[in-house]
């Protein structure tokens, strides 16, 4: 498809999106008001389910199916990257030269890594209580591991990052979310229904399935991002084409 033929579907799509946006904007509640039809209902349900962070209640309880969709998008994206950035037959790996790193930076990297890891796990574990949750915490955990690359050395990162287990963990996290949803069916309710005891409001053990789903997402996101970055790093630092391009 070239020229005008390609432009017509684009123009039609843009026009339709613009029309939908305008129609939606005309019926939006006013900006900055303290009443909102959806907000009020979401907060009421979150309180009933003993989940202090209403956003988590919406994401992992009231609209948990949407989150399953989002999680699957990330899963598919990682899968796509793995396929696209794989090492092809005419490519080979060359171990990159170690980069000189000043000792204070190296010390900072080795000390900040466990702290960042802990912060990531904290964000995942407190999803039902305070801002954050599986996605945000998972990305922090993955970033923490890559402190080894930016502050220490690529080979140090490679030692703690065998890609295989992380790929496995990515799949396990995704599967855990799906299976936790099925637990709702087994309990005689709907798929992804919050069937666990809701616990005490504003404590770690509250929100029923919310913290469990958060943990599943955290595992999937953390290992997904690690796998994603592993392939980017491999392509940029290690894999060279047959013409023998050099780092």
């Amino acid at each position: 498809m070239r020229g005008p033929i390609r432009r017509w579907p684009l123009a039609a799509g843009l026009a339709a999106t613009a029309a939908l946006l305008v129609a939606a904007c005309l019926r939006l509640p006013h900006f900055g008001g303290d009443r909102h039809p959806y907000g009020d209902r979401a907060v009421r349900t979150a309180l009933l389910q003993r989940t202090a962070n209403t956003v988590s209640s919406v994401n992992f309880d009231q609209r948990a199916l949407d989150t399953l969709g989002e999680e699957s998008i990330l899963f598919a994206a990682v899968l796509g990257t793995v396929v696209l950035l794989r090492q092809t037959r005419d490519e080979h790996r060359v171990a990159p030269q170690p980069a000189p790193v000043p000792p204070p930076l190296r010390r900072y990297g080795t000390l900040a890594l466990p702290v960042a890891l802990l912060i990531g796990l904290y964000v995942i574990a407190h999803g039902q209580l305070s801002p954050g949750g599986g996605f945000q915490g998972g990305v922090v955990v993955a970033t923490a591991l890559h402190l080894l690359y930016v502050a220490v050395d690529y080979r140090a990162l490679e030692r703690i990052r065998p890609v295989g287990p992380y790929e496995l963990a990515d799949g396990v996290g995704e599967a855990a979310y799906v299976l936790l949803g099925a637990a709702g069916l087994l309990a005689g309710s709907a798929y992804l229904a919050n069937t666990l005891p809701h616990g005490t409001f504003n404590t770690m053990a509250s929100g029923g399935t919310v913290p469990l789903l958060n943990a599943a997402v955290g595992m999937e996101v953390a290992s997904g991002v690690v796998v994603l970055l592993a392939h980017f790093l491999g392509q940029a630092l290690e894999i060279v084409g047959e013409e023998g391009e050099r780092t």
């Binding site: 956003v55 988590s56 964000v123 801002p131 954050g132 996605f135 945000q136 990305v139 922090v140």
Partner: peptide
């Protein structure tokens, strides 16, 4: 929550 996602 959204801000935290963006930061992460």
């Amino acid at each position: 929550d959204v801000g935290l996602s963006q930061l992460a």
